[in-house]
């Protein structure tokens, strides 16, 4: 009972932190005396709030939650704590798809680009999962290693294609993740993660079962293949839509589920809320840091998260190696 109470307390504390960060994110903008002006009813300040601050914060929260949840699903499907969309090439494939979309049909709108990114991400992830099931690795670190190589390979091919089309600069832009440019017009694509998240919640129990293996899930009457395909679709749509609006944020899908598992144990359904909460806090915090570091300028979040995430992941990796799991 005591443990349960302390867990509830922890959760309430985390929710409070989340709300505080949310408010901070809304009101940290590069506009002098933002809050007083807002209270005075200055139309400029109001415009910034409705057309920049609010859409941006919505995007941050949705991106953070969906990336973390996609990490949980990926790790359940792959039965491996070291994989996520960014370590098995899903993000790289989404980028390749978007780039090909841009080259082949320059007049495409964002929605059609989303289609390209989603298609490539889905196919690539599917191929990778099939390959991994064929090869059957002894050591669990083999899979993320192969995945990162696979991703690097897709990345190199993307570079070659961009070089052929003279689009290196666009590629460099696409590879940078930032919340700086988001306004009420261009954030809408990110709303596509909402249905994906709903599906994730609906199928949470089944992902839990799939984690036990193919034979086990068949015994429990779960359609193993179908659940995996649905999982891959969820992950791909999340990768593609967050990629188009924000860009690739490294490490979120990898470290958030790992950190939550350390505290609460492994249970997709029970952890989903905590993962979302924790992911939201992490990304909001890092985004606020990158906003304040050289205020009023903005450091792209891909860089800040690359540093913070790499440190957390390296510590996690060494900790897990020492425990021998």
């Amino acid at each position: 009972m005591n443990i349960y109470k302390s867990m509830v307390k922890q959760r309430i504390l985390l929710v409070c932190i989340f709300i505080l960060l949310l408010i901070a994110s809304l009101f940290i903008v590069s506009y002098s005396n933002f809050i007083p002006e807002l209270l005075k009813g200055n139309p400029d300040a109001l415009l910034i709030l409705t057309h920049s601050s609010i859409p941006r914060t919505i995007t941050i929260v949705l991106t953070a939650i969906s990336l973390s949840v996609s990490g949980v699903i990926m790790q359940a499907i792959g039965r491996n704590k070291f994989i996520s969309a960014s370590t098995i090439g899903t993000t790289d494939a989404a980028l390749l798809g978007i780039l090909i979309g841009v080259i082949a049909f320059p007049k495409l709108n964002n929605l059609a680009r989303l289609g390209f990114g989603f298609g490539f991400a889905l196919i690539s992830t599917f191929v990778f999962v099939l390959l991994m099931q064929k090869i059957k690795f002894k050591n669990i670190i083999f899979v993320p290693l192969m995945g990162m190589m696979y991703g690097a390979l897709i990345g190199a091919i993307t570079t070659i294609i961009a070089q052929q089309a003279g689009m290196e600069q666009i590629l460099a832009m696409l590879r940078q993740a930032s919340f700086g440019h988001i306004n009420s017009q261009n954030f809408r694509i990110v709303l596509f993660v909402i249905p994906a998240l709903i599906f994730a919640i609906l199928y949470a129990t089944k992902f839990n079962i799939v984690m036990l293996g193919e034979d086990f899930s068949k015994n429990l009457g779960v359609n193993y293949r179908l659940v995996i395909i649905i999982g891959l679709c969820i992950v791909s749509i999340i990768s593609a839509s967050t990629f188009i609006v924000v860009g690739p944020i490294p490490f979120v899908g990898l470290i958030v589920p790992n950190l939550v598992t350390l505290y609460y144990g492994e249970n997709v359904k029970k952890n989903l809320f905590d993962v979302a909460l924790f992911g939201g806090i992490l990304v909001l915090l890092v985004e606020i840091i990158s906003r304040l570091l050289v205020y009023p300028y903005l450091v792209p979040i891909s860089l800040t998260m690359g540093i913070v995430g790499a440190i957390i992941f390296a510590v996690l990796l060494m900790w897990r190696m020492r425990r021998g799991s």
Partner: peptide, 10 residues
């Protein structure tokens, strides 16, 4: 690989 990502980011 993590070190390389880290180094590139920093």
């Amino acid at each position: 690989m993590i070190l390389s990502t880290f180094a590139r980011s920093i």
